[in-house]
């Protein structure tokens, strides 16, 4: 495939929907389940991951010629951990409340397999432009998934979205939704829905491809 502007754009889009890191690849489950009890937390975690992923993809892609392959994983981890520390201190200084809510899960971004995975599988083998677009797409997809989960859980669990009450003061909160089981339940149901849509899509395509008499059997 030629490196046209369209293919760069494609690189970005695939992360958001077709190869969504959470809904399709099922990566990065730890922050996914742990911090999505409200939309604000999900947004903060999504943006932090976005920063780390795009930053390290950029750097890894730039350095890919110089890093010997024997020490590549350690080098990637150093790069990722540096970005994580930067975002950790920045959040602590600027948004201490959010930092307190996210707690240990900010340092744990370092261990998010999504990020290391992109470095190893993509950024270290592609030009800076592609690497950054891929990172933007993947991080965007991750952010989208976090927000979807955080939104659902906050709406049901607290009757609010981004802290804005939706149902008035008499709302009966679904407490399980802001507890860990709610994370598993919501993620499971979203995955169910995602697979169902994909299946339907595939079925429709198969039907178009198959000759008519096979279809009737």
């Amino acid at each position: 495939m030629a490196k046209t502007p369209e293919s760069v754009y494609q690189e970005m889009l695939k992360g958001i929907w077709r190869d969504n890191p959470v809904f399709v690849q099922v990566l990065g489950m730890c922050p996914m389940l742990a911090v999505t009890n409200s939309a604000v937390n999900a947004l903060a975690m999504g943006l932090a991951t976005f920063f780390v992923l795009v930053g390290s993809s950029l750097l890894v892609s730039m350095m890919r010629k110089w890093i010997p392959k024997q020490v590549r994983i350690s080098s990637y981890i150093i790069i990722i951990a540096t970005f994580v520390t930067i975002i950790d201190y920045t959040l602590l200084a600027l948004f201490p409340k959010i930092h307190k809510e996210l707690g240990a899960f900010i340092p744990l971004i370092t261990a998010n397999c999504l990020i290391l995975g992109r470095q190893e599988a993509f950024a270290s083998r592609n030009s800076v432009r592609f690497a950054v677009m891929d990172a933007v797409g993947m991080a965007g997809g991750f952010l989208f998934a976090l927000l979807a989960l955080g939104g659902v859980r906050e709406i049901l669990g607290e009757g609010a979205l981004f802290g804005v009450s939706l149902f008035g003061p008499n709302f009966e909160p679904w407490i399980i939704m802001i507890l860990p089981p709610g994370g598993f339940l919501t993620l499971g149901l979203i995955l169910l829905f995602f697979n169902w849509v994909t299946e339907k899509h595939k079925e429709a395509q198969m039907r178009l491809l198959q000759p008519a008499e096979e279809r009737s059997s």
């Binding site: 080098s75 150093i78 520390t85």
Partner: peptide, 17 residues
């Protein structure tokens, strides 16, 4: 390579701290 990476990373972390 690792030493340079560590050094640069260390400087960045000290700066942000």
């Amino acid at each position: 390579t690792l030493a340079i990476a560590g050094l640069v990373s260390g400087i960045a972390i000290v700066a942000i701290y």
